[in-house]
Design a binder for these strands. Sequence first.
DNA 1: CGAATCTTTGAACTGAGTCAATTAAAGTGG
DNA 2: CCACTTTAATTGACTCAGTTCAAAGATTCG
Lengths: 257, 257
Amino acid sequence: MQGTPSPYCLPELPKARGLRCTASDVLHWAGLPQLASAQTDAVGFALRRVLAEQTLLHEGQAFENLYLVCCGSFKDVQIDIEGYEQVLGFAIHGDVLGLDGLGRDRHASGAVALEDSTVVVMPFAELRMHSHGCAALERLLHQAAGTELLRRADTQYLMSAPSSEVRVARFVLQLAQRQRALGHSERRLRLFMTRRDIASYLGVAHETVSRALTALVQDGCIAVSHRDIEIVDEPALRELQRMTRGRTPREGHALAA
Amino acid sequence: MQGTPSPYCLPELPKARGLRCTASDVLHWAGLPQLASAQTDAVGFALRRVLAEQTLLHEGQAFENLYLVCCGSFKDVQIDIEGYEQVLGFAIHGDVLGLDGLGRDRHASGAVALEDSTVVVMPFAELRMHSHGCAALERLLHQAAGTELLRRADTQYLMSAPSSEVRVARFVLQLAQRQRALGHSERRLRLFMTRRDIASYLGVAHETVSRALTALVQDGCIAVSHRDIEIVDEPALRELQRMTRGRTPREGHALAA
DNA sequence: CGAATCTTTGAACTGAGTCAATTAAAGTGG
DNA sequence: CCACTTTAATTGACTCAGTTCAAAGATTCG
């Protein structure tokens, strides 16, 4: 789809050490650098390269590994009975994939790379063993699960917005916030997914995503060029986002225009 | 709200042993009876009674315990900036509450009892300690997290339905399926939440839930009396549920009418 | 350069939200 | 125990936002 290197690659990347990394690296990438130690230095994991469009995790596949996105981006998907692809979420640097297999023997959702990406392969059995003696790895697992649940709650909040313009506004802010957490620019952001993916994620028609984006541009909230978005007026965007069920969408417009 | 005893109470309930139960009990209630052993018999947990309308877990509260619903029902909620109460999910017998605190120090969502209920209080620190030496409790935790994630995916699927009638149909089927898993009737089910709660959960106006329910009744799919629902024509309901984005809602109606 | 996909825009229709009013149920207090 | 109050649920009318269908640009890739 687009082979451009992701802006989310950390400087400290693979290649040097062949195709492996240590648990300490994982802790750094997962946002828990303070937990890295000599003990976690001793635990190694393999890296795996996944090309754009490739499926890292198939729906229904046996649960064996967790994956930490180390570079690139993915979408979590589930195909429903009619063949409609429901996008459940997006994963970028530092996110863990495959958590829905926890406690059962197969994955309920799949993961597809949106660009050329690299993941750390963490065999669950190993992770589990190590986690008994190593609090850091135990914490990593718990944190990953908790973060995933948090994100799903965000998604539900997002989908419950009464107007599609609000949904898209919330989506953009959510992306910006995740970027910020990674230390990247919160003003300019790149959409690594198609409008269709966004539409599926938000639960609207893909034409509606297009229209909502141009509406936000006309409101002066953002600027859009292809898949690059610039947040021009963050306060206005935040004001829009706040609108929940029970308020008329037009109020906010007047203020933004 | 309604003090009637829930139909989800298992026969083997508290009182006898005072206000405590064993980890083996928990494993039974959580659907992992095969993992109970002498070891888990030795681990005890306190029970806590929560009256209807009471808050078991406050949003933002420090993360200390996980709770297993042993009798009764709850809703997971999050209040947004404007004061709108977003319902994230419902918990009944066998479900674990408080998982969103995993790996962090506070809960992001709250839990409110929908009727008089009983929960098992599982201090996370204890659970964590025991889980190192006891695979059964470790499994319990993993399974609970995985199940929660699965359920959130179901919810997203539900919310992405293009028509509100389909959303409600899916909601009813989801409830029925959970009942079945507990060994209860899948034909007759009791809504333990208000229409408003359902509306918030589905992301629609509460009037719309009312209308969708009466529409389903007129389609001959279900029968509704107050908060009791009977599934009259499950095949038709399943047919309705299948309709995803991209198909016209009216096709299914013709078939059901 | 052409094929395929992604994206945008337009037009028509309709389903869902909002407002409003009525009915029903449940909880309160005399 | 029954009037009274409050909250929940249903129904109607109206309007508008979003879906669907259709077609035209734009971009990417072979």
